Computed example of a mutant assay.
Amino acid sequence: MQEKARAVRGAYAARETARYGRRWNDEELMLGFLGDVGDLAKLVQGKAGVRPREDLDQALAHELADCLWSVMSLADTYGVDLEAAFDRTMAELGAHLARDGAAPSNPESP
C-alpha cells in the first residue's frame, strides 16, 4: 500500500509542479487531509440519514481510502514508519484496555 501511495503522491507532485511551479508543501498536504476528513464527515452523516445519497457506500469507501492515502503521505513526509507506529499504538491501547479489565476481543491482539 505504501508504494502505491508514494507513486500517486509523486504523480500529484509532478502535476502540482507543472501547474503551480512547485509541489504542495507539508502544510498544504495537511490542509488537503482536513478537506478529506470534512468530506468523510458528510458521508458519515449520510450513513446516519442526514445527508443521504444514492452512491453512499461507494463514496464512503472512496473517502476512507482517500483519508488513508493522506495519512500515509503525511507519514512519508515526516519520516514516520506508519506500520511500526500502528503496531506500537495498538499494543499500548491493548495494554491500557487490559489494565481496565477490557482486553481486546481478538486473541491475537496485543
Rank of each mutant, 00 (worst) to 15 (best):
L97F: 05
L82W: 01
Y78T: 11
K4L: 07
G46N: 03
G21P: 02
P110S: 10
L29P: 06
V80D: 04
K42F: 13
A48D: 10
A7N: 02
P107D: 12
D39I: 06
R9H: 11
A11Q: 05
E3I: 04
M90P: 08
G10P: 02
L64T: 11
G35C: 01
V50A: 07
F33M: 15
A13C: 07
V8M: 06
S73F: 12
A18R: 02
E3M: 02
K4S: 13
D57K: 05
P104R: 10
Y12T: 15
L29H: 10
W69Q: 02
A18L: 10
L93F: 14
N106M: 13
D57A: 11
V8N: 06
A13R: 00
L93I: 15
L93G: 12
D36Y: 12
L29W: 00
D76W: 14
C67Y: 11
G35P: 00
N25F: 01
V71H: 04
A84S: 12
A102K: 09
A98G: 03
E108F: 15
R15V: 15
Y78D: 12
A48I: 02
E83T: 09
M30A: 13
A59S: 13
V37D: 01
L31N: 12
A75C: 08
F86K: 14
A5C: 10
E92W: 08
T89S: 11
S73L: 03
K42N: 07
D76R: 05
V50T: 03
R53Q: 14
R22I: 04
R51N: 09
P104H: 10
R53P: 07
A5M: 13
D66W: 00
V37S: 02
